[in-house]
Structures are given as structure tokens and as C-alpha cells.
Design a protein around this nucleic acid. Structure first.
Length: 761
RNA sequence: GGGGCUAUGGUCUAGUGGUUAUGACGUCGCCCUUACACGGCGAAUAUCCCCGGUUCAAAUCCGGGUAGCCCCACCA
């Protein structure tokens, strides 16, 4: 056996590290210089508030596959990186890690702790990204908490303020008692809880009683009306009468309103500030006076009388007891209903009125729907959740947060001239800053609040396209080629990005949007620390290599579906990487062919090349749809089911004899396979390509279809299987001779078949 | 209450009108055939969720269910 040029018998996964370093040294993934259209990827800036698990590793590997393919197929691709560092998650992490409360800690000190903690997690993310072989350009990562990035956020704020799209208003909004801040609707999740529906008798001033059902009896003190449906015969005579609130003995009016449903509870409903959004609307429409009885910590305030100081759940329990003992309770039903909770802390939300800044979005929803029709979604049905959310948007976006680690609201207050905004293009640490009023020069203090972190990340498309830095680059890069992201942030990151970028540029932010499912554990369960099913990438990379982890990430499920991490499958992927290496090693035994002259090719050679052409075509189609499942499985099946067992066996003898046709073909196929798989398994393919062909595979062009001929592939395979079966049946070894005729339709390949099977006539 | 996705051998999965229904893992035989035993050859294992319909023909199209996951929605 001749010496293979690939000397190592096995592919050593420890080589992945060397290769990654080589990529760095050669600066392979640098920002393209400007010529023609630029393909910029609006990489999701990972949030640096915790150790990265398999979810991040696989998600970003998939994005990397798109980036690598696009670079090889279309050139001019830039895969930058940002790190998201603003907002609640890091504050929560710091409060937990250091066992303190942000509101009780000096602001400067707290911000410093956030920074250090962020750096720690950011390093972990970078390590994992390097480990996974991401082809990001590390040279200029942006951080959303850097003065540079925050300048962009503030400048866009100032622009929109001047356009009149931002205003301050006091209206009831989602309040998280745990995080001590207002939240946007997009940050609200729902949870089903067991609760009680309490039927209460209200005395009427005019005599008699009316019964209402409520799940929030602790809000009785805030009750301002009872409504009944205008057509409800049961309550016709009650309309306009006055009821007396139990315990608090305040008088309220019974009013007919369409909103009351005759078939729920008793048909009569109390309206309090604020049990839910329905109440908010009724207060507004009926011009009721709001009475807030729950404070910002979630405790009852002094308006709640004897219940003051109790958390609302506790107060609810107590008031039910009191109502019972005073004979107001008719009955109590067990119910299940959904309550709004905070996306971060999972605390139950209250509706509280506070002055906040709002960004107008109601008047833009129609436009965003139109823009979304101009964007190609991968997969197409993922547009649905976005449209659903657009339809669900019901109020403007509250963008100010009563928190600390965020971009400060760039608003200053002159004692004489009121709120004003400074010039764009600079960073303002407003909470710690006093500026002279542009009108009168008087000291103007900055606002103490910060912006919703989505105000920062929603302009990432502008950041990566150099909107604020490089006009020439921006013109070539905008709208941004691709927004890849996970499905759980459609209503936040995707929606807000489309909104904000449109408000600034008047255009769609992206040409393509690629949305992936969740990465789950082996059983399809979301990974979570409390369940204890969290898997970390380092373990798998160490055992099977990043190539194998990536391959399973590509070959596991189709576009948009959830991805299950499965160790068995990663092991299977490792086998495939090894199999391909073995094929390459076999081919490397023969001297590199001097020409690629196709007049030297035999029928068998043309057969495998036309099979290869089909695989290339299908793979490219898959890659263009950004669905790596297609190339991964197509190529895998081709290598394992066609190329290795049939073609290689067919031409082995010829190749050992030094036949150029066979050797040229083997190399052509190998090169094509390495290139086609390079986006998915970048390490092994690069090592082999460099060793055999002297260049990096990642700087190659994706191959195009070369030969298309009709060949009886299935019959060829069937014949081989027939011979193997026959030898097996006779109990003879494969190298023994056997008497069999080559069928007529396979005459073209007769000489190879005879040599392969040791046929005799 | 509305919507999306999914439903195929023990497990996972391919398959958008005609196939002996793919492949992987696992199981069971046989084999170190000069790239590969992390391999090769072969075997067993499927009422293609249920009920109707369209069609010469349905896993595949249509209607209606059921189950799981997810999203949206003010049932007090």
C-alpha cells in the first residue's frame, strides 16, 4: 500500500484548536473591502449574563454555516459580532451573585459590578464561539453598553424626539414589583395559576343587593363602578342605582356597558384600578378617577385601610376571611386563569400609572406589516408569529426604565424651559450630568432613568451597516442582508428593529430573516437550571469535536424546528467526520494528478461525477434557503451510500494501477465534498484541504455543477448488492472469484465491475 | 377563544399523488475484502395518530377529530 499523504490514521479532534489559531493569524474573516453589494449579517449580540449552554453554541454555529457558505458562494460577506450588555438581566445576575439590591447600592458602584460580571461572562461566550469555530470577525466587536454604541442609541432617541415620535405620559402600565420597573407589553409573559372567583353581595343604597364575581377582592378599595350589560334583563332595574362597597362603605354607581358579559360570573362586574387591561380601558372610557391601592413593591398602601403593608396575595386572603365573617360572600369557585408575569423575574405584574417615555408605534404597525412582505423569511411560515404580534400591539412602547445598567435617557430639564434634548453624536451619562440650557444657560439636570434594553439592540442593524460611521459602507450594506435569530424574540428584537430602523431610515431593515427553533434536551424539554437538564458545549466538543457537534446541529432537524441535543447523534456525526477523513486518506495515497483532462475519464468516472453534480445542485439549493439540513444529509448520504461503497470499490484496482481517469475523478469528488461541507464542518475539511491542495478550503469558491449525464445508478448499485449477496450465500470471501455475467445495461462499466468483484466468465 | 408547528418500526427521522415507505441509533447474525472494525455485508422490527372525502391510485390532497409543543387573546 502506497503511503498516504494524510499520515495520521485518525482525524485528531485536538487539531481543531490549531486550525482556529491559523484562521486568526491569517485574518480569514475580515470585514470585506467595499466593492459591490455587501452581505452583512446582523448577528444576534449574545447577552453576557450567564454561562453559555448548548443552545447558544448550536444556534450560533448554524448562523456561522450560513455566513461561511455565503462567503464561499457570493463573497463580500461580513459576520461581525456584538455583545448585548444592557438591561435587567445583568442587574438581576449581579443582585443574585453579590446578594444586594440595586436600589440600595450607590449607583456608580453598582454599575462597576455589572461591568466586571459582564466581562466574565463575555469571555466565556468568546471562548465557546472560538471552540465552535465561528468565523466571526473579532477585530471590532461592538458592546451595547459602550459609549460608542450608547451614542447611537441616544442619537436615534434624540432624532425621534425631535420628530415628535417620543413623548412622556402618565398612564397605567405593566409594573414588575420584583424588578421595580415599567415593562413593555412585549416583555410580558403569561402563566396559568389556580385562583378563586369570589361572589360578593353589595348592598344597594336603594335597598336590596347585587352580586358580583371577582378574582381580585383585594382591589375593593380601588373599585369605582359596577357595570352590567345594557340588554341584560336580570339587571335592567339596577341600572343607575348605587351600590355600597363592602368593608370600605363607599358608594359607587351601577352603569350599563357593552363590556359586561352576561354569561360570565353573575353578569355584573366591578371596575377597579386596575385588575387588568379591561379595567384600564373602562377607566379611560368612563372617565373614572383612578385609586391606586398597590404600591411599587407590590404591597397594599394606606388607601387599603387595615390591609396596608400586606403583599397583595396576603391581603387577598385576609380580605376574603373578613368578607366571609361579615356575611358578604355568597360562594367561592376554584378557577384557573392566566396572569401576566415578568419575562425576567417571573413576578406577577401590576398595573400602575407612572410618568414614562413612550415611542409611538401604533401608527407604524401597518407599515411594518407591509415591510415584512418585502422580506424573505426562512422558513416562510415564521412570518406568522410576527404578523400575529403586529396585530396584537395595542399601545405605544414605554421605553424608559427605572433601572440603572442601561443607556441613560438623554433628556435634560431646565428650570425655566422644561425638557430639552442635546445634540446628537455624543454620549450623555445623564443621571450624573448637568448641562447648560441652550435657551438660557441655566443648569439643567439630566433624567435619572435609563432606556429599555431593546432600544439599544433594535438598532443593531444600523450599527453593523455602519450607519453612524461610514456612509460609503452603509450605502452598500443597507438594507442589511440577513437577520438571523431565535423564534422567542420575534416580538421584541425583530419587531422593534423593523420599527426603529424604519423610523430612522424609512426603509426595511433586512432582506432576509432566518429564524431558528429552540435547542432542547434529548427529550424535547427546554434546558433550564431548575430542571437540571442543562448541557454545556465544552463536554461534547472535548469528546467528539466541534465539527461533530456542528454536524448534528445541521443534520438534526429541518429549518425552524426545535433542535434536540442528542449525544448518540453527535457520536454518529463524529463517525461521519472520521469516515470522510478515511476517504480523503485513501485518495491521498495516489500522486496528485497532473491534469484534469476529462478525455481520460471512463464511464464509471463520468457516472460518479454526474451523481456528484446532482448532490452539489441540491446542496446549493438548501444552502441558498439557509436550510443546512439539506446539504448535510444529501452529502452524508452520497458519501456513505454511493461514493464510498460503490464508486471507490469500483475504481480501486484502476487507481492502484495508476490510471489517471480514476485518480483525477477521486480528487475532483473529494475537493467538491470538502468545499461543500466546509461551512458545516470547517475544521477537518480545512486541515485536509490544506494538506492535500495547499490552500484553505474557506477561501475557495463553492463548486458549480459540472457534468450531467444519465447513468443507471440504481441498477449499478443493485448489481453490486447482488454480487455481495451471492458471495455471502456461498460463504465465500469477497476477494474470491465468482462466475457472473455483467448485465447488458451495465456494459459501460464492465471492466471496472470485473476487477471489483473478481468476476469470471 | 384564536393561530402556528408537529404526529411514520423501540427511539429519532426522510418522504408534497403511483416507492418492495428513507436513513440513523439500538437489536440480531456473518465478515479484519490491501481507506476505514469509529468499518463492511445481511436480517428482524411500521394497521405511515383516528374517522370521512377527492382520485384508477393517498403517508402524501381536502374536511372533521385526537394528542404534544409553542404563540396570541381583557373572560371580571
Amino acid at each position: 500500500m502506497p503511503n498516504p499523504r494524510l499520515s495520521e490514521k485518525r482525524w485528531k479532534i485536538s487539531k481543531e484548536k490549531e486550525i482556529a489559531e491559523k484562521w486568526q493569524a491569517e485574518n480569514l474573516y475580515a470585514k470585506p473591502t467595499i466593492k459591490g453589494k455587501l452581505f452583512v449579517i446582523d448577528t444576534p449580540p449574545p447577552y453576557a449574563s450567564g454561562r453559555w449552554h448548548m443552545g447558544g453554541a448550536i444556534h450560533y454555529s448554524q448562523i456561522d454555516m450560513i455566513a461561511r457558505y455565503w462567503r464561499m458562494a457570493h463573497g463580500n460577506t461580513w459576520f461581525p459580532l456584538g455583545i448585548d450588555r444592557n438591561g435587567l438581566p445583568i442587574e438581576g445576575r449581579v443582585e443574585k451573585d453579590y446578594k444586594l439590591k440595586a436600589h440600595d447600592t450607590p449607583r456608580g458602584k453598582f454599575l462597576e459590578l455589572c461591568k466586571t460580571t459582564l466581562d466574565k461572562y463575555e469571555n466565556n461566550i468568546r471562548d465557546v464561539m472560538t471552540l465552535m469555530g465561528l468565523s466571526v470577525d473579532w477585530s471590532e466587536p461592538y458592546r451595547t453598553d459602550s459609549p460608542d454604541y450608547r451614542t447611537l442609541t441616544q442619537s436615534t432617541f434624540i432624532e425621534l424626539w425631535k420628530k415628535g415620535l417620543i413623548y412622556e405620559a402618565t398612564k397605567p402600565n405593566n409594573w414588575c414589583p420584583g424588578c421595580q420597573t415599567t415593562l413593555a407589553d412585549a416583555e410580558v409573559e403569561h402563566k396559568t395559576v389556580h385562583s378563586h372567583l369570589v361572589y360578593l353581595k353589595f348592598q344597594l343604597k336603594e335597598g336590596g343587593t347585587i352580586m358580583i364575581a371577582t378574582s381580585r377582592p383585594e382591589l375593593l378599595a380601588a373599585c369605582q363602578a359596577i357595570i352590567v350589560h345594557p340588554d341584560d334583563e336580570k339587571y335592567k332595574e339596577y341600572q343607575g342605582k348605587t351600590a355600597i362597597i363592602p368593608i370600605f362603605n363607599r358608594e359607587i354607581l351601577i352603569t350599563p356597558r357593552q363590556e359586561a358579559k352576561t354569561d360570565f360570573g353573575t353578569g355584573a362586574m366591578m371596575v377597579c384600578s386596575y385588575g387588568d387591561v379591561n379595567d384600564v380601558n373602562l377607566f379611560r372610557d368612563m372617565k373614572l378617577t383612578e385609586t391606586i391601592v398597590i404600591d411599587k413593591a407590590g404591597k397594599m398602601n394606606k388607601l387599603a385601610g387595615k390591609y396596608q403593608g400586606q403583599f397583595n396575595l396576603k391581603a387577598r386572603k385576609n380580605i376574603i376571611e373578613d368578607l366571609k365573617s361579615e356575611g358578604f360572600v355568597e360562594k367561592i369557585e376554584e378557577i384557573e386563569h392566566d396572569i401576566p408575569i415578568c419575562w425576567r423575574s417571573k413576578d406577577a405584574l401590576e398595573l400602575i400609572s407612572l410618568p414614562e417615555f413612550y415611542l409611538k408605534q401604533m401608527e407604524f404597525t401597518e407599515k411594518i406589516r407591509e415591510l415584512s412582505d418585502e422580506i424573505i423569511f426562512h422558513p416562510s411560515w415564521m412570518k406568522r408569529p410576527l404578523i400575529d404580534w403586529i396585530d396584537a400591539v395595542s399601545q405605544d412602547w414605554p421605553i424608559s426604565r427605572r433601572r440603572f445598567y442601561g443607556t441613560p435617557v438623554p433628556i435634560f430639564y431646565c428650570p425655566d424651559h422644561g425638557a430639552w434634548v442635546p445634540e446628537t453624536g455624543k454620549y450623555y451619562e445623564s443621571w450624573d450630568l448637568v448641562l447648560p440650557c441652550p435657551e438660557c444657560g441655566k443648569d439643567s439636570k439630566g433624567d435619572k432613568r435609563v432606556l429599555d434594553t431593546w432600544m439599544d439592540s433594535s438598532v443593531s442593524a444600523l450599527k453593523v451597516s455602519q450607519y453612524d460611521k461610514d456612509k460609503e459602507f452603509f450605502d452598500k450594506a443597507f438594507p442589511v442582508f440577513l437577520r438571523p435569530q431565535a423564534k422567542d424574540i420575534i416580538r421584541t428584537w425583530l419587531f422593534y428593529s423593523l420599527l426603529r430602523v424604519y423610523q430612522i431610515t424609512g426603509e426595511k431593515a433586512f432582506e432576509h430573516v432566518w429564524i431558528s427553533g429552540h435547542v432542547t434536551d434529548t427529550h424535547g424539554k427546554k434546558m433550564s437550571k431548575s430542571i437540571g437538564n442543562v448541557l454545556y458545549p465544552e463536554t461534547f466538543v472535548e469528546k467528539y469535536g466541534a465539527d461533530a457537534v456542528r454536524f448534528q446541529g445541521a443534520a438534526e432537524t429541518k429549518l425552524g424546528a426545535d433542535i434536540r441535543v442528542n449525544e448518540e447523534r453527535i457520536r454518529g456525526a463524529k463517525k461521519f467526520v472520521q469516515k470522510l477523513y478515511n476517504v480523503a486518506r485513501f485518495i491521498s495515497m495516489f500522486e496528485k494528478p497532473l491534469t484534469e483532462d476529462d478525455s481520460l475519464l471512463k464511464s464509471s468516472d463520468k457516472w460518479i461525477l454526474s451523481e456528484l453534480s446532482k448532490v452539489i445542485k441540491k446542496s446549493i439549493e438548501g444552502y441558498e434557503e439557509m436550510d443546512m439540513f439539506i446539504p448535510a444529509t444529501e452529502i452524508r448520504n452520497f458519501v456513505w451510500d454511493t461514493f464510498a461503497p460503490h464508486y471507490i470499490e469500483l475504481v480501486k484496482t484502476r487507481a492502484y494501477d495508476g490510471d489517471q481517469g480514476a485518480i483525477i475523478t477521486l480528487n475532483l469528488v473529494l475537493k467538491a465534498l470538502l468545499k461543500l461541507l466546509a461551512p458545516i464542518i470547517p475544521f477537518m475539511t480545512d486541515a485536509v484541504y490544506r494538506e492535500l491542495y495547499g490552500e484553505s478550503v474557506h477561501t475557495q469558491k463553492i463548486p458549480i455543477v459540472e457534468i450531467e449525464e444519465e447513468h443507471p445508478t440504481e441498477r449499478l448499485k443493485a448489481f453490486n448488492e447482488k454480487v455481495w449477496g451471492a458471495k455471502k450465500e456461498k460463504g465465500i470471501s469477497l476477494k474470491e472469484k465468482i462466475e457472473l455475467d455483467v448485465p447488458l445495461e451495465l456494459k459501460l462499466y464492465e471492466s471496472d465491475l470485473i476487477a471489483m468483484h473478481h468476476l469470471k466468465k
